[in-house]
Amino acid sequence: MREITYRDALREALIEEMQRDKTVFLLGEDIGLYWEGAFKVTKELAKRFGVERVRDTPISESAIVGAAVGAAITGMRPVAEIMFGDLVTLAMDQIVNQAAKIHYMFGGQANVPLVIRTPFGGGVNIAAHHSQSLEAWFMHTPGLYVATPSTPYDAKGLLKTAIRNDNPVVFCEHKLLYPIKGLIPEEEFTIPFGSADIKREGADVTIVATMFMVHEALKAAETLEKDNLSVEVVDPRTLIPLDKEAIVSSVKKTGHLIVVTEDCKTAGVGAEIAAIVAEEAIDYLDAPIRRVAEPDTPIPFSPTLEKFVIPNEESIIKAVKEIV
């Protein structure tokens, strides 16, 4: 095992898949020779693989995804980068009406092996147009897979799987995760979609958390252990497909569920997970489910405001204490 950052884990996945398969190529704004990616995930890749396979594009999100769709249905495996998750709005028709529907609508004649990488999440004071978490929109779009890695290990393994998958994948990254470090094996590995990871085992409360919130949940679990509360942290790793079984069986064990996500609370990721547990395991619950999420506001700029709306260790602990 060796320790690398989430950023380098993603980069390694791109390098390995580009070496393995000549049809894999990258396109996006400022990912190439001169800037090497807004978050440096594509550092030195244009130098290594050439500008034909690591393509700088104009600021044209709709054309980035649209061109990736066109390439994907004609034999290529594009990995498109949208510089900030908020900007997927500019490509929504191509993602939702085209990429997601082509396989189904044309009766299975074509596959769309396309990955759209984009960073979501707040915490770096860049306000309402660069800080949202929009994963739930894509959970609501049949035909897309949605990956949400929280660690370097998951990032690498899931990105390799995403690139090899024949369906369009919205690959959600998180700005605050890029510099975090974690252990990954020396040898090649992939992680199957729809397989949750128990990030910490526990007996009293289940916390289902995604992306950066996994780390906040783990901190909360650590703190709560001092109060003799044993917290289990379940990371779904992919929201579509969702490992319902892992979530439901954890809830059956603990009888308590907290869902922590960074997206808006209403009709969000947590709402779906809570609904699944209500449908499939309500008799096992000893207390109401709690969702810890963004309180339905745009992400504000000023540090005091932003800190207030994004869930963290304290708000998670508060929610846990309300139900146990």
Binding site: E52, I73, D93, Q94, Q109
Partner: peptide
């Protein structure tokens, strides 16, 4: 759509096919 003869499908969102055709062109080039 008939992918066996290069008909990459009809899209009913006006204008949506334009970047898709560009992508098919990119694929040809690559």
């Amino acid at each position: 759509a008939d992918f066996s003869i290069g008909v990459l499908g009809a899209t009913a969102v006006v204008g949506a096919g334009i970047p898709i055709a560009t992508g098919a062109g990119l694929s040809i080039k690559l």
